[in-house]
Write a protein that binds this DNA or RNA. Structure first.
Lengths: 251, 251
DNA sequence: TATTGTAAGTTTGTCGACAATCTGATGATC
DNA sequence: GATCATCAGATTGTCGACAAACTTACAATA
């Protein structure tokens, strides 16, 4: 008899949390956004109870802060957060290549195919000058890495770190922005994996993450710094010119 | 004018979450414990609303699972979780030594003092054959490492991983248990730091974590395996012979 | 005897409401 | 004119209640 996977229906709280995460990722809820519970609950079509539960979950994930008696606010990342998040990613992601290379050949090929597809998405986005699509493909590329190179727990944890990375971008620049070099860097990642060179993969990822920190904190790599390599996009979805609020962390 | 740190009152949800974390750490709520919301809310002296919010937070932290319509259950760690958690710790903790060594001398001395104090606590506990106290000092030792070697975020994340480590112990053995070697291992950590040898510190921590995995999964290091090195303690606080339940993860 | 159908009981998931608290502004006093 | 006190408005934090859903036990049938 074939094993049936257990049914897993998402609870309302799951749904709300997922919706809020999406909103954070796609920029509908830029960092610093302050929202009232009643209003937000009405928009989502739920009552305040489940919404508050979802808020607590996202708070634990570090995406939201809950200032007392002020509803909820999307977390604004600081320079320290940027360094922090990338430091953590740099401890984990370079190792994932090694782990992927220990997978059975069939799965390994599958991973390479998926990663290749994401890189193609990135290239297409670059040709169209679509910063948003490029950033989304970037997220998915690293998610694939996490899913195959790690466990469920690791995938979840890295998933959160990746969303936080996006929050860093939104926090550091007013608009969404990615760097053109992203694409060749990721091409190199895939090439290293295809060549079964885990060592090289690790070093490339490490270098990429360090470069990302520099780009986010606007520390030029070399004196003749040029902004023309940056691809940016206004956040088109729900412009919401909401108030900003920098709080000393609500937790 | 002197900078005042902002006042931070803990919300009810914070309090409940902290109380539940404590209960998980001290074994009052062993893995697999299933609790009804109403009963638990009554015990804590709060209504179900805030309790449910705290549950969501602990779920995001990975300590609880919320099976649908069955209240809440303390997560039971699997062998994969054990490997996972220690793999993550092994990516992070060895680096903390290096970072502590870059601290200004005054702070560095303070850290060493704190770590030394924790080791002393461990030694006292060992002399009394008090496994529980030994385990608590172990947790605090590594918390000190996280606080000084990392950022707030890192401290919180590692804090969660440490509680999960405790859950691993509870999940793998029926009773609380630690290994005698823990103490000399930690003495060596402090010595390496005192000698400003970050490299050696890293390797020792790495080795410790690998050993922990072996101990937890009962993979003997050498053929003539001997259990006499293990120190165990029944969980005295609230014996609660509660039902056990192994669920396919509620999230 | 094993299995399925039924029903009662229990518990959760969700909602609405109340009260405490905070914010912001207005007015009074020095 | 500036500072402090007071007050109204709005919003959260908490609670109680209802209904839906699930579990478990029991009985009936093949």
């Amino acid at each position: 008899m074939g094993r049936l996977a257990p049914v897993r229906r998402a609870s309302t709280v799951d749904l709300i949390a997922e919706r809020l995460r999406e909103a954070v990722v796609d920029g509908s809820l830029p960092p610093g956004t302050v929202l009232g519970e009643a209003e937000l609950a009405y928009q989502l079509g739920v009552s305040r109870g489940p919404l508050r539960e979802a808020m607590q979950r996202l708070t634990a994930e570090g995406l939201l802060v809950i200032p007392r008696r002020r509803g909820l606010a999307v977390r604004t990342m600081t320079a320290e957060d940027v360094r922090d998040i990338h430091w953590l990613r740099a401890r984990i992601e370079p190792e994932l290549g090694r782990r992927i290379l220990t997978l059975p050949p069939a799965e390994r090929r599958a991973v390479l195919a998926e990663l290749g597809a994401e890189v193609k998405r990135m290239q297409r986005a670059l040709r169209k000058d679509d910063a948003r699509a490029l950033g989304d493909a970037y997220l998915d590329f690293h998610r694939v890495l996490a899913v195959w190179g790690g466990s469920l727990r690791l995938a979840r944890m890295l998933g959160t770190l990746l969303i936080e990375t996006r929050l860093c971008t939104f926090s550091m620049f007013e608009h969404f922005e990615v760097h053109r070099d992203l694409v060749p860097e990721h091409v190199a990642f895939v090439e290293a994996l295809a060549a079964e060179d885990g060592e090289r993969f690790g070093m490339l990822v490490q270098a990429h993450l360090e470069a990302e920190v520099r780009r986010l904190l606007a520390e030029p790599e070399d004196p003749k710094h040029d902004d023309s390599d940056r691809l940016h996009a206004e956040t088109p979805d729900e412009p919401q010119p909401l108030d900003r609020l920098d709080l000393p962390e609500g937790l």
